[in-house]
């Protein structure tokens, strides 16, 4: 197992080098002078431009620039944010708990919907429940999440006034952040009003992100349950008179294996979706940070975020592979 892990890490090296080349190239694709574009809204002189260019090393040959970029990345230096005048990595890490909290709750919501619906749809294949479930799932992947988000705001914030349309928590809740995960923090400090406030802020964005994931996961659970249903061990379990409920539990354990891969793949969709959804709900996470970096033309921050997202995706793919092997004893790491 350790051997396998080390080998996988080693194979990831060229991928990570490739990711660094791509993110490095990204801001060099800007048509024109990036410094002039970044400064276009601020009064500046030609000397300012050349001074900043030298300061950021943008007047050196590309290879030298790339060499420095890699050296910085290795030491955890993602550059400096132009907009916030802070190290990019610390800006990202500041906003990360908000995104992780949103992502985890969305994932939980998606599983709470997808597992039961997927299982029942497969067990009662072609029933009315199955048909309606499939149509709703297709609807779910067809409606843009950011539009559903806006409609939820119209109904639950504007018309009914039940839920807040933006932010993570009400200031009056008086939460003392410890971990940065507000659900956890409010439980740790026993602050009930902070917990309610956090949940109220979380529910809409998490529902939007979660339901989009649920549609795909549900389809996967359903089809792998149907696949498993044909297996000999299911037939024999039924033949020896096992209760249907027990048979389904048997089936589900094996049907979940391909589902794990889908969940792993959805991490990447979640990061993309978070950019738009966090913007709509003014959720102070890395997704909204991306849009802020773009609108203030903070290209170094954008580059850092994109690199960070790519590394996160690679990391989660690795985790998915490992978990896949842990739950499926047929897969051996050799």
């Amino acid at each position: 197992m350790l051997n396998y892990l080390l080998r996988r890490m080693f194979l990831l090296l060229p991928v990570i080098v490739g990711i660094s080349i791509l993110t490095f190239t990204l801001i060099r694709l800007i048509p024109g002078d990036p410094v002039a574009i970044m400064l276009q809204d601020q009064p500046h002189t030609a000397e300012d431009l050349s001074r900043i260019r030298t300061q950021w090393g943008l007047d050196e040959p590309l290879l030298v620039q790339y060499g420095r970029y890699v050296r910085q990345l290795v030491t955890g230096d993602f550059g400096r944010s132009f907009m916030l005048q802070q190290p990019v990595l610390s800006v990202i890490l500041d906003q990360l708990p908000a995104t992780i909290e949103l992502a985890v709750v969305s994932l939980v919501i998606s599983l709470l919907i997808a597992l039961p619906v997927g299982v029942v749809s497969a067990v009662r294949q072609y029933s009315r429940f199955d048909r309606i479930g499939t149509v709703i799932a297709t609807l779910g992947i067809s409606m843009p999440g950011f539009w559903i988000g806006l409609m939820l705001i119209v109904v639950f914030s504007v018309k009914l006034g039940w839920l807040p349309a933006s932010g993570r928590i009400d200031y009056v809740a008086g939460l003392e952040p410890i971990t940065g995960f507000y659900l956890l923090d409010s439980l740790l400090t026993g602050n009930l009003s902070a917990l309610t406030s956090t949940l109220k802020h979380l529910i809409m964005p998490a529902m939007v992100l979660g339901s989009a994931m649920a549609a795909l996961t549900m389809r996967m659970v359903r089809s792998s349950m149907l696949e498993v249903a044909k297996q000999d061990y299911v037939v024999s379990a039924r033949a020896k008179g096992l209760k249907e409920r027990a048979v389904i539990v048997h089936m589900l354990r094996n049907a979940l294996i391909p589902t794990i891969t889908v969940l792993g793949m959805q991490i990447s969709g979640l990061l993309g979706g978070a950019i738009v959804i966090e913007t709509i709900f003014a959720w102070p996470g890395t997704g909204r940070l991306t849009v802020q970096a773009i609108s203030s033309r903070d290209y170094f921050l954008l580059q850092g975020i994109v690199f960070f997202f790519a590394i996160t995706t690679v990391f989660f793919n690795l985790i998915t592979d490992i978990v896949y092997g842990l739950v499926d004893p047929r897969i051996r790491y050799s």
């Binding site: 694709l29 800007i30 990447s268 969709g269 990061l271 773009i294 954008l302 997202f309």
Partner: peptide
Amino acid sequence: LDIWMAFPFLVLAIAMSAVLG
């Protein structure tokens, strides 16, 4: 492919359009 797939589709599309204008 491995390098490209590390970038979430929408993240890459957003970053590319931001840079290209």
